[in-house]
Design a protein around this nucleic acid. Structure first.
Lengths: 216, 216
DNA sequence: AGCCACATTGAATGGCCGTTCAGCAATTTA
DNA sequence: TAAATTGCTGAACGGCCATTCAATGTGGCT
């Protein structure tokens, strides 16, 4: 969405040819996310993407060389945005592990990252990840750094908890629960809205660490 | 895998032409699961499926009319097998809700249902579910009946629990956690084996209902 | 104004894949 | 054994789609 402005006006406009290369790339990535959400991975075509972007047929190959590159750039964008979102949330949460973990969970249901179309795009890539090493690496079950942080925070919190359990298992469950909630929000959006999903995740934290996340 | 025998010998053999129509269909469905797991949805072709099955190019259209039908039949098979698995497990668990829920969780990590290739096939369909109503209905976030049962069991157990919480939210979380664990077993099989995933799910139950699922 | 650099276009190309179907061969029936 | 039935084959067809590239148009520069 937000694109670094390059032209002297400092505000790129999307009309005509003034659009910078970066702007065009982002425009095409957005169109790709739309197509993935609407048609699925297998029915996403370059014709569809260029139509959606309101540009001509050859445009993708001009800016991305190949369809494969466009898709990788799209996944890269989603992954970067996702990572920036949670890192920002944690940074703002101060240095208390309990608050940091709470912020991490809330970040997953932020309205810029957790959109219908982006959820669907993620899911489309998950479906292809097994057979494409590049996708697999980028999906990486969200991010190695993310999981590492969750494990660290759980360990810190569990150290002073009554039920120690195995904090690594709690971290794994939390990761999986968050991904599972995303998946269900995609498969059955009428059953589970953003607020409900967030509430489910917080309920998990309250059950896992009852002393640190008390019921109101 | 197991196919009802139809011929007079009562034991179908797969060689030559004696194979019954049902046997051929199952053979092709198995080949389709293999291809989905190995190549992903978008790269699964009828040529690939027939090669994998060791049969000729036109065979799928002969037995299934179209590629679309083959894929629907494959998903149907996975869904039926999955449902039969948990229903059987619950039936064997007696009529105690606590034991039934434990059986339900364990059923999800049964080695007949929870295979690498089947996990990957499920995930391939998830990725296309949004844009194909038929897939969406069959995936149905696993099964309406399944979720209904989980909700019912959680409600029964929560009724006598100390932390009531909202039992529907716990049920939702459990569903999502199980799906999320499946997803992660697919995306990062080296990180999370069957036993670890089952342990994570059981840990969730212990935290949600500490009085009913005590720590050893 | 005139030129240059280059972003953009869209028709042409070639390959891949689902579908069809006439023919073949194995099995069954007469 | 001959005929009939039927599962199966694989070459041929047609459509779709990614990619290419010569032509076009636009903005920036002198």
């Amino acid at each position: 969405m937000a694109v670094a402005a390059k032209s002297k006006t400092d505000v790129d406009d999307n009309k005509g040819r003034k659009a910078s290369k970066e702007f065009r790339r982002q425009q095409l990535i957005d169109a790709t996310i739309d197509c993935l959400a609407e048609f699925g991975y297998s029915a996403t075509t370059l014709a569809g993407v260029s139509d959606r972007a309101g540009l001509s047929r050859g445009i993708v190959n001009f800016h991305f060389e190949s369809k494969e590159n466009l898709l990788i750039a799209t996944l890269q964008f989603l992954a970067d945005e996702y990572a920036a979102n949670w890192k920002d949330a944690v940074a703002k949460a101060g240095d208390n592990p309990v608050e940091q973990l709470r912020a991490l969970v809330h970040a997953d249901f932020n309205r810029t990252v957790n959109t219908r179309r982006k959820l669907a795009a993620w899911c489309a890539f998950w479906g292809e990840a097994r057979s494409r090493p590049t996708y697999n690496a980028l999906c990486g079950a969200r991010d190695a750094a993310y999981q590492e942080l969750v494990r660290k925070l759980c360990r810190q919190i569990a150290r002073e908890a009554r039920h120690p359990g195995d904090s690594d298992i709690i971290a794994l469950s939390l990761d999986s629960l968050l991904e599972g909630l995303w998946l269900r929000m995609m498969l059955a959006p009428q059953d589970i809205k953003l607020d409900l999903a967030r509430e489910a995740a917080m309920e998990f934290l309250r059950n896992a660490f009852p002393n640190h996340y008390p019921r109101e």
